[in-house]
Amino acid sequence: MDVLIGAGVLAATIRLATPVALAALGGVVTERSGVVNIALEGCMLVGAFFGVFAADRTGSLPAAIAAAVVAGILLAAVHALAAITFRADQIVSGMALNILALGLTSYLDYQLYSTTGTPSTIPLVPNVHLGFLENAPVLGGAIGDQSAIVWATLAIVVLLQLFLFRTVPGLRLRSVGEHPRAADTLGIDVRRTRYWAVLASGALAALGGVYLSLSVAGSFSDNMTNGRGFIGLAAMIFGRWTPVGALGAALVFGYGDALSVSLQGVKVAGVEFPVQLLSTIPYLLTVLAVAGFVGRSRMPAADGQPYESEGH
């Protein structure tokens, strides 16, 4: 039973879900405003690299996180420029930026750290030790020693859910993604709202990248995000474009990943469980969600559509 719901598996689920959840939250913000940003993968990757780079250069963790977030915002800004101002194809722009991010980070890593790797002495994001949970069964092992970014992610989920569905600016953001023409006639600046949303998505994804490099690995390696930006988009769809739903979906995906570790070597009816199959869970669930098998899943009405105001 421990391999299915033990403290170790639950802790691993949370660790593996966190970067996916952050990318998914970025996806929720940007798509709710009507801009598809598949460059989240690239934003994560530049976040992962520049986090390590700044940590190495400054020796300061806050500076490292700030640099990573700025890098993610800058990459997202290019996407915003292409998608919002120039009304370019959002998929093409996003994909181009992903390739750019992969090439840029591996080039810089090669130039700066090719022989010795990124330094092993850089400051890392600390874990939060919950002493009072130390002797609690399951719970203590599952959440008693998680990265500070895990808790930050949880806070962001709650705040973002409240922001989008309980505040006026949140309503405006959603209206821009549902019916930009109507929002425009009511005096909402569609472009500006969308710019802010895309930049925020870059920042959130970059935080996911920082989590991978400065909390999980303690170093940078080529393509270390390994498709988590895309899995994040899948979690966003599976979570029906809401922050809480996205977190739930990320946890489901993370659980699949965690099982692929804990079920290794476990025999089911005398046959070793094929753990490789578990890594297909996110994709299968997403295909089901996209195909409409998992409840109603409706994207924002104007998602991915460039907006041209009447004045132009």
């Binding site: 598949i38 998929i91 895309f230 769809i237 890594s279 297909t280 295909v287 996209v290 104007a302």
Partner: peptide, 28 residues
């Protein structure tokens, strides 16, 4: 926009195929 859904479905299915080989999530 349905093309986003179609793209994601396509991309994710492609990734499912290459996932076992440790493939990167870029278009080929």
């Amino acid at each position: 926009m349905p093309s986003m859904k179609r793209f994601l479905a396509f991309a994710l299915m492609t990734m499912t195929v290459v996932a076992g080989c440790g493939g990167a999530g870029t278009a080929s």
